[in-house]
Design a protein around this nucleic acid. Structure first.
Lengths: 152, 152
DNA sequence: TATAGAATTGACGTAAACGTAAAGGGTGCA
DNA sequence: TGCACCCTTTACGTTTACGTCAATTCTATA
């Protein structure tokens, strides 16, 4: 049962059962989104992805791609995979998803606060480090040119 | 052999052998610098601190305090303990410490670059997250007031 | 003397997101 | 037929800076 043979996959013109099902195997999926195979399997193991199977071979659909995009966005903004899963698990294609959206908003507000705190910490660190570097440069300068100075 | 009894420690007026040796035990040291006992022992285990001993009891000197301050500063600006140790290990009380200072400066420059990159990433994250939140709020608004709209 | 308060060493546990083998199947092509 | 790839599962390893017992000892004090 050949669905997408390697090589043909890139120029995929297969219009099988459903129009444009566009199934890809793990290798192509990984390349397409810049992640490793291990990562995709890991996400699946954590319940974040759920690709079809052709025998034992994973086949990722359009929906898997959408989910992966969300996961990667979530990771980028600093959510844990656990958070991402919680939010995605609330998705219901038949409903208004009000609950999901509210949860996402709630988590996002908290995450935004965390990010802002982190940014503040990093700026503090940058300032402290810059000060230290200035002091070190000063000491080095004094060592290379030990002229008379009032400093102890 | 009593050196610093608890309670007396705070109002320490003991001028023993060397003037103002100012030895403190681990509990007071921890409180003074806002770290746990575990942390102090851990730092010692990693070769970052080297307190004296009264039998089996650790006694921290003025020098240990100076070193701990440096460790905490290092951690604050994002150095690993390994980095901190490398830098401190080069300290030689009899020399000019040019090598140490150069190493510190070198590491600091790299760390500064990392911090700046991190800051950039965090700001990207903040922006992306803010955008997502706006979109979610939009969707929620549409759900609570589903008037006619052109949006799909 | 009994109790409460420090200290000690030793050693396993934790978090997060994968990395990295190891051992093995399936397939198209020269 | 056999390489060259792609895929699979299982499972231990990695990183960092400690946290958290556990079992014991020491000491001051009421």
């Amino acid at each position: 049962m050949k669905l997408v043979s390697p090589g043909e996959a890139a120029a995929n013109t297969n219009m099988s059962d459903k129009a444009g099902e566009d199934l890809v195997r793990i290798g192509e999926m990984a390349k397409k989104y810049g992640v490793t195979l291990r990562t995709l399997r890991f996400y699946e193991d954590k319940g974040l992805l759920n690709p079809q199977r052709d025998g034992s071979t994973r086949l990722y659909t359009r929906r898997d791609k959408a989910r992966l995009k969300l996961i990667l966005l979530g990771r980028k903004v600093g959510f844990s995979l656990r958070d991402v899963k919680q939010m995605m698990d609330l998705y219901d294609p038949t409903g208004s998803n009000t609950k999901q959206l509210r949860l996402a908003l709630d988590k996002s507000e908290k995450q935004l606060a965390r990010l802002q705190k982190q940014r503040a910490l990093i700026e503090e660190a940058i300032n402290e480090l810059s000060n230290s570097m200035a002091a070190v440069r000063q000491m080095l300068a004094e060592r290379s040119a030990p002229q008379a100075s009032a400093a102890g």
